[in-house]
Each structure stands twice: as structure tokens, then as C-alpha cells.
Amino acid sequence: MDKIPILKMGSFLLVTIQVDLYDRLALNLEADLIRMVDKTGAKGVLIDISAVNIVDSFMGRILGNIASMSRILDAQTVVVGMQPAVAITLVELGLPLNGVRTALNVEKGMALLQSMIPPGSGDEEITEDDHISV
């Protein structure tokens, strides 16, 4: 079964979705990610969907779920790099993803996460990508 890799960068988790998701894969991602947030005590989750061509209502719901679940676990979620066509489609679909923070690209998303996290809680400095298999 395919898996989406989750990278840990300091107190943030970084997920880059590179393939078109089908529902099972998205559900797995949701479960894995939440487990990782809990295990690492991450303060922020960054989901890069710049390579995703299609976000339908199911995917949108998963993104919303991840954001709400992480919030309960005291982590902020930022979705970055949404393609224009995807954004237009989501709005037309009636799914403006109100609970999800967004940013243009990974860099801006990181900055947004940094600014959202109260100072003092981000105790680790950002290290190189260390890949953690789940």
C-alpha cells in the first residue's frame, strides 16, 4: 500500500503530496499525520499540495479534518501551494475550506507557522530534513 512520507523539520511536520490521491490513501495520511503530531509533539503541520491536480469534496474534508484534529492536539496546520484551477474548483464546489490556513508556497507557509506559534514553545532549532518512517 502506498504511503505519503511525512518529514519532520524542527517542531514542524512537512507533508508533500506528490501523487493524485485516492480516498484510502488520503484516509491513511490523515491517520498517520495525526499519530505523528501526537508522537513528536509537533507545533505545526505544513501540507504542500502544489503537485495535486484534483481536490474534491472528500480530499477537502480530509484537509479540514487534519486541521481540526491537529488544533485539538495543539498544532497549527497550513496548506500551501494550491493551484489556481484547484482553488477555483473548490470555491465553485462550495467548499471554501474555512478552517484551514493557507499560504502561497512552502517558504511563506513556514513563516506563517513561525508567526502563529507563541514564542518559547518552539524550543528546537530547525534541523536538516530527517525522514521518519511511520
Binding site: D20, N53, I54, V55, D56, S57, F58, Q83, P84, A85, V86, I88, T89, E92, L93
Partner: peptide
Amino acid sequence: RNRVREYAVKIKMGLVNQTKLITAASE
């Protein structure tokens, strides 16, 4: 979804309309 995209590209559908069609199909 990829098949639908192939067809859409064949008739030169714009990217946004392609995405809308495929999303609808996916639903």
C-alpha cells in the same frame, strides 16, 4: 481520472474547466 484528462486535453479544454470536470467526475 487520467482517462478523462486525456480526453479533455484532446479537445483543448482549458485547465480550470478540466479541473472542474475531473473533480465533478471524482465526486
